[in-house]
Amino acid sequence: MDSRFGRFWLAMGYAFLYIPILTLVVLSFNESKLVSVWGGFSLKWYGVLAKDEAVIDALFLTLRIAFFSATAAVILGTLAAFAMVRYPRFFGRTTFSAHLNAPLVVPEVITGLSLLLFFVMIQNLLGPVEEWGPFLTLFKNTFGFPEERGAFTIWAGHASIGMAFAAVVIQSRLIEMDKSLEEAAMDLGCKPFQVFYLVTFPQIVPALLSAWLLTFTISMDDVVTTAFLSGPASTTLPVLIMGKARLGLDPTINAIATITVAIVACAVFAGSLYMFRQEKKLAAEAAAAYRDAD
């Protein structure tokens, strides 16, 4: 009884989690614009999407911001994780850890609002950038900041949120890593930086990768903070979708969703296949090792 009820509960739970996603996929192939009418199989919404330059532009902007903010977040998150794990005592450590975890609990509306006001304040304080010399002018010409908000301000916001998430992932890997590996490296003649790139780095690569993917996804996905930080010329894909969704149902969103799901599904499938093979290989090798142990 226990197990039959359990299976039922699990099945219902997974249905709840997956049916909405599946409906998006199915509806993206619906000829009809109406949700409740099946107008036949069609790829027409994908065609509409491909011709929609606003969507394409937004997509590339989103990818670009996500790439750079994930990279920055992982670098900063690695440093922060090291600070937390390797230095049990430093001035202001409690404050540091509170700061580091804050973006995980503070609602996005607040992060977005505070960053926006901060950028506006800098803009007001600096005034016309040209008066501050060639360096800031070059900065403005490259990033558009502080003259106006856009890709740069979004990047900064996403990097600071992503850093918190990256730090959590990397921290947990660092904690479970055998500290004596680093000591062994030092014992065998590695200077501190050599210890990092010869021993620690190879150990945490998987964590860095998953932290990067996570922060990339968070950036790709973010609506609220982005809406606060974006300027007129910088609409990201989620902001665009949000705008469309507020106006009601739009079949092109279904097509976007289906493409996302397909990419994620492929990545997950490839990833788990790789992990499965790797695990099998490891198991076989370990078994062989014990067989011919002398």
């Binding site: 590996l181 000591e183 490296a185 014992d187 003649g189 590695c190």
Partner: peptide
């Protein structure tokens, strides 16, 4: 002296062999 400069080497309890 720093550990990496000492002519002293250690065999660690859990061996600390580099897994990679």
């Amino acid at each position: 002296m720093q550990p990496y400069n000492r002519p002293i080497n250690m065999m660690f309890q859990s061996y600390a062999l580099f897994p990679h």
